[in-house]
Nucleic acid binder design. Sequence first.
DNA 1: AACAGCTACAACCGCAGACTT
DNA 2: CAAGTCTGCGGTTGTAGCTGT
Length: 249
Amino acid sequence: MSTLIEEEIEVRKGPWTTEEDTLLTHYIGRHGLGPWNMLAKCAGINSLINILFTLFFMFWVDLPLTSSGLKRSGKSCRLRWLNYLNPDIKRGNLTLQEQQLILQLHSLWGNRWSKIAERLPGRTDNEIKNYWRTRVQNKQQSSSSLKEMSSQFSVPCQLPECIVPSGSVINISEQIEFPQHETSPNAHARTCVDNNNLVLNGSYNIGRSGQDMEAFRLASMSAVGEGCWICNEMTDSLWQCRELGEMGN
DNA sequence: AACAGCTACAACCGCAGACTT
DNA sequence: CAAGTCTGCGGTTGTAGCTGT
């Protein structure tokens, strides 16, 4: 649905220019993250105040006066800020731990990219989504599947290799040794959430391909306590049982 | 050097839920 | 309560850059 505000102005699409980036960044720097539609309007040249501001700013930062101003939708501004301009965003490749965490969280939550992104500070949902689609999903689709990915990480796992017939159901509590500080008897049941083929009430449905089991195995690695491949820092910060409980909510 | 195929990423679109009037 | 509007999310697409032939 296009908003009235968006209809009022000619909305630009496509790649953002550095001038647009500068305008948006500077506006947010001055006024903070207001309502996006209002922001889009106010940051644009349509606002008389912003004409003056823009002219001043262009002069100040020595931009050419031919700049066309910001004619973007609120949505577009929000996306540009959240996925690119926000200074909190981490640049560079995902670390091994981040990649592993994405795998784990995806196995728990499915395509809940924004929720997964919350657990990866500095990473955006769009980035994680792109990572998953381009690098993980492609591998899943290939004959080698996730299994190859897990071996690629070369991480020891304390879990016994679980070979479960396709379509069968296992009880998680029988498969995973949880750390001693685990206090909630239902926590691991709650870690298994509402994604399509995922777990409910402590049981895990094995999909046809067996990839689900592998994904689950990856997901469960971090919950097996000392000696696990995952670094203690991550275990402490991300996988404490209290949090595991929260994940299911 | 030219081309095709692939990869990574930015950006758009449509939808649903939240919020406001 | 209903209609209108806004916001955020997930899916999808377009494209620039890279790599192999």
